[in-house]
Design a protein around this nucleic acid. Structure first.
Lengths: 344, 344
DNA sequence: TTGAAAGCGCTACCAA
DNA sequence: TTGGTAGCGCTTTCAA
């Protein structure tokens, strides 16, 4: 059995209460005594038993809240699963976690959930919502009230959030560019399609892609087109471009709409000659990879994105450990038909 | 606060001890009373507080051991870090974990460590060693003694181990083949290099690769060559092949030796025209990706490989939950110069 | 078959 | 500035 605070108390000739105060700098202890206690603890390699701590903490009932927007999408469902996993892990440490799922992109609903969670007594929040002025204001207010907020999946960069956990979209775009570069050693014509023009993540995915391929002389980039996350628009854009450019070698799409693109390629009987690179490994994309309609899918580690924020809040609130960086980027996964199975 | 065993005891008009015995089927309780208790617990949605359980468990002192062979390699260091992480997490649940690192591939040393850990009182073991008859025999013996063994990173398939956590080497080979296929749309000449001919993992990486590319008519596979994990041999093989085949398009190497290959490509001034695909994202490979000497690196989630086995042993020994599958394959990661940074 | 009580390690509170 | 004590939820022992 490891060394306990009781043992230290006996060695120092004081009570456990004094040891506790000394080691946690809670004050109300003679500095000399505190020094002696700290030295003994150091020598014995004392580390407070986290189970004991958890037991006490459970009584205090620290509460954390998490809110996920667009919860109806496959990716956010994965994120939610990660959050639930973290909630379960933290339960063991004596915390309570409430996870709220919001359908669609609706800042008003998100704000309402924030209100409810604050009323419930949440000491920290994890928020995955889109970056609107209203949300930024609310996050700033929470910050002033001493309630830390971690954004995840989608950032609110202008707010005073503790940190962000999610994909580095620009870097993801670069990664996509690297793949296209490898696929087209002899160069070729590439069509980039974005989702919404005003979606920060989609835009960065595009920028990273364009910036990285621009220098490569033998690769020609067509002007990018927005498809507004819709398969029908994406289909129309792809079909039109395929007909106009018989030499089209690749389509890069940063958002939903990939099914429309693949259908267009198939319709025009260009499958195999036109490569498609898309985002997010969900069920439909898994199928499109298997069938060879998609060459690559860039995936975010959704589960991790859900898990980390709550852990970070826990470490911040209970151990006073702030996250190492403001931007905690999750891994960028490259998926092909061969590594998109159900690995653990 | 969630419902406690005390509350159930009061509602059932019995003591906490009786509730405990009833809910955990420890016997020594009137069946009718047990039924009543179970029904109340069910209705109230009782779930035993894991902190309370951990506190008691800590007193009993359940011990787990982990042994890693070839601990001096970068990959195994990552695996070890994962094991340490798991050890820390389990400490919170009241377990003690001892991790032993063995230098080199030495079954005798591994067996000695197993002895020591058993003497120490380990109730379960995680073992990453090479698959030798001696080890298999020992694992089987442990199994008979009721000590579960989880193999990780490297499997001992013929043993009665509880399960294996690691890469699906054949599938990794297929993944590499898929990348080569994408890189060489017009076909081309490919040289496969393996490490040791008798290394199961390296052989599977080769087989998966060959099987997947065999059907592709326009890709020509040269006979594979073993380089015995050595850069100098790999250099020699690559140099010789580069000179003999000016049209060589790609080298696939399943083991160490990738530096020798890259040097040969550079020496022969074929960098950019000859693509190299290798394994494991360690420091040197990160550099080779950055410099463009390597096109792709296939990586195993080493950290996860270290973490999982101990968690599995915990669930098995304390919750009676056997792993879902015998072969728990970890993710196959594709790394390029753009996604091989230090993401979390 | 059942109950009562101890004890795990820690922190918080109150009294001195 | 200190010590003493209660109590978190659970399991286990001992006694009835």
């Amino acid at each position: 059995m490891a060394v306990t605070s009781q043992q230290i108390a006996e060695l120092a000739g004081v009570s456990r209460g004094t040891v506790d105060r000394a080691l946690h700098n809670r004050g109300r202890v003679n500095p000399e005594v505190a020094d002696r206690i700290r030295k003994i603890a150091e020598e014995l390699g004392y580390r407070p038993n986290s189970i004991g701590q958890a037991l006490v903490r459970a009584r205090q009932g620290l509460r954390l809240g998490a809110i996920l927007q667009s919860a109806e999408t496959p990716t956010m469902q994965d994120v939610a699963a990660g959050a639930r996993q973290a909630a379960e892990e933290l339960r063991v440490s004596g915390l309570e976690v409430d996870i709220r799922e919001v359908q669609g992109r609706d800042t008003a609903k998100v704000l309402r959930q924030i209100d409810e969670l604050m009323e419930w007594g949440a000491a920290g929040l994890a928020v995955a919502s889109n970056n609107t002025p209203d949300l930024v204001r609310r996050i700033d207010r929470l910050h002033e009230q001493g309630v830390p907020v971690v954004t995840f999946n989608t950032d609110a960069p202008d707010s005073r959030r503790l940190c962000f956990v999610g994909m580095d979209s620009y870097r993801a775009g670069q990664t996509a560019a690297g793949l296209v570069r490898q696929m087209l050693p002899g160069g070729g014509l590439v069509l980039p399609i974005a989702g919404h023009v005003n979606n920060g993540a989609h835009y960065s995915r595009l920028q990273g892609f364009l910036d990285t391929l621009k220098g490569e002389g033998d690769i020609q980039l067509l002007p990018f087109q927005p498809c507004f996350d819709r398969d029908d628009y994406a289909h129309e854009i792809a079909q039109h471009t395929l007909r106009e450019y018989p030499s089209l070698a690749c389509v890069y799409i940063t958002s939903n709409g990939q099914r429309g693109v693949c259908r267009a390629v198939e319709d025009e009987r260009r499958k195999g000659r036109v490569r498609v690179v898309a985002y997010d490994l969900n069920a439909p994309n898994r199928r499109l990879l298997q069938s060879g309609d998609l060459s690559f899918v860039l995936d975010q580690v959704a589960l991790e994105q859900g898990r980390q924020p709550l852990q970070i809040l826990y470490n911040y609130l209970l151990n006073g450990k702030a996250p190492e960086k403001e931007l905690l980027y999750t891994d960028i996964l490259i998926r092909t038909k061969y590594n998109s199975g159900d690995e653990i």
